[in-house]
Structures are given as structure tokens and as C-alpha cells.
Amino acid sequence: MQRFPDLRGVQSLFWRLVAAPEGVAAAVGSEDLSYLIRPDARLGAVERLDIYADMYFYRLRDCLAEDFPKLAARVGAAHFHNLVTDYLLAHPPRHFSLRELGRALPDFTGSHALERSFPALADLARLEWARVEVFDDADAAPLCWQRLLEGGAAAPESFAATLIPSARLLRLDASVLALWRGDPAEPGERIGVRVWRKGFAVHHRSLATDEERCLRELAAGGVTLARLGELVGNAPRLAALLDLWARDGLIAESEARDTPDR
């Protein structure tokens, strides 16, 4: 009989067996594990390892289903189960937080065979992941309309703003917004989408071209109102956008940055 391994050996073997995509029994094969695990009349070594293997997979699958509920609903339980199996094989969890588990799932979905059966699936996952990210991103004091008016009127060349930390700008297939609501939709053009947290609630919406242009500069931080005016080229339109961003809590005051590339 083999000798009981050292601690490193025990853990490496245990991990290999419980994370084996083919299942514990297949991974063990004909090996006698009695040198490692004490069997009893109720359960053998493989059955006992299977308890851990099940807990490993189903905990992670449930976590991903919680973070990507629309993706899971779109493909159905069986496809989602297989997607997660493939994903965990390619991207076994490494971070201490389960929150990070799905970080690579959107790109992985894009390269998965399911993307051919369910167009825009990866983009749907990108939208869901952005919503996960902003949920507990850093807080910021958003600019209110009153402060925008005062600051903008007093010093449009130096009064500057930035996108709040809990906001993301995405480029997605236009059908994703309907798919997210559970409505049928055919793939379409690529559009800008913003995802942000207002208070504790996460929102998303599509972007007009000029709004996206402004928000991408604001994401780099320190954009003056004068610069935003240049980008929009239309004072009433800029006022409307500032009003919208103030109501959405989307921008915060910041120092103006140097803009040598302008």
C-alpha cells in the first residue's frame, strides 16, 4: 500500500480529484485510495470525495447563476450547466472572493459554441458583469444640478467633472437591452451603453452618440464644462445632458486635467 502523503501531497491530490471534470470515480480509476481515506460501511473513499466534488461545482454554478441570471435564463439550465463546466475547467477560481468568479465569463462565453446558438450572449454577460461590478464599487458624491450651474457659470474653463467610480461604459449589440428584459430580439448594430449605480440601485441605458463621446472623456477624469461644450457643440443639448447626468448621479466634481492631446 502507498504511504500517506505529506500535507502538500494530500491537498494536491484532493484538489485534482474533486475538481476533475470527468468526475471523481473516473479520475480515481482503479486506484485504491484506502491509503488516503478511511472507508466505512456506509461510504467508500470515492463517495466521500464526491460529496466535496458536488459541493465545489454546485456552489460555483449557483454563484454564477446569481451573477448572470439573464444569461442563465436565456440558455436554459442544461446549457448553463455545461457552460459553467467548461468555464471552470478553463478558469478555475483563484481569487479569495466569490464575487470575482465570473470576471472572465463574458469573454469566455464569446468563444464558446453557445454563442453561435444564442447570438449576443457574450454581450448579455458583459452587461450583467458590469452590473455586478458597480454594485459595490466605491461611493462618490455626485454633482447636483445646482452646483453644476454655479460652478459652470463661474468658471467654465476650470470647473471639471469626472464619471463616478460606480459606472461603466460598454459597447454592446443593441439586442442585448431587449434580451436583458427577457424580450426576443435579433442581433443589430453595436451601441454604447452605460451601467451605473445611483444610491444603491444599479441601472443601465443606451447612449446617444454625443453622450457616449462625452462620457468616455469623463471616464478619463477632469473634463471641464468648456470641453464638454466643444464635444457637444450645442449649448441647449449640453444643458440637457448635464441635467440628465445630475439626475442620474452619474458625474462628480474633480480637478481639471491637462489635455495636451486636444
Binding site: D6, F14, W15, L98
Partner: peptide, 21 residues
């Protein structure tokens, strides 16, 4: 322990009760 080799099982895995451990 919850993982080895840089992996994290996000599960509470058992230790052997040895002097080494």
C-alpha cells in the same frame, strides 16, 4: 483549507489531523 496550487474551491476542505498539519 480552501484551495491549493493557486486555486480556490470556495469550500471548507478537511485537514488530516497530523503533527505536520
Amino acid at each position: 483549507w480552501t484551495g491549493v496550487g493557486g486555486h480556490n474551491a470556495h469550500d471548507l476542505l478537511p485537514l488530516p489531523y497530523t503533527e505536520e498539519a
